[in-house]
Write a protein that binds this DNA or RNA. Sequence first.
DNA 1: GCCAACGTTGGC
DNA 2: GCCAACGTTGGC
Length: 155
Amino acid sequence: MAYWLMKSEPDAFSLEDLMACKNQTEPWDGIRNYQARNFMRDDMRIGDKIFFYHSNTKVPGIVGIAEVASEPYPDFTAFDSNTKYFDPKSDPDNPRWILVDIHFIRKLDRIISLAELREHEAELEDFALLRKGNRLSIIPVGEEHWNQILKLEYS
DNA sequence: GCCAACGTTGGC
DNA sequence: GCCAACGTTGGC
């Protein structure tokens, strides 16, 4: 099993929004970055665990846990000119953007903030989230880092 | 293929 | 709101 971190701006789609979705499951649409797409298309497997991260907000950090809940399939929002994710270059016969569904598992008892993660930068060696200028919205998390970060919840 | 211009991300 | 970092676009 693999582990991931997925960023979302809570104003656009928060962990609470995911909890309120039908079956607490929702397609992770709107990703328009090739590296992030490739992770979803090529590397994610059903059951992989996900840190749900709130970005671009007052206290950015990990707020919950979700899991990959589908095989990869085309991001339908790219075909819909009524959505802000419309991409005329994504041909339905050869879709450019691919997504997976994610399913809510639980909310953390408290947020593990980016600031707190930075305090543990030494143990979390090479954790991509902490790298300067990192803008990737889907980040692979090593099993060891996953466990180290989870331990912070009750530390 | 280079690279300047431009747009976006996201912490602060 | 600012701005550094980075990705994408498009002219050449």
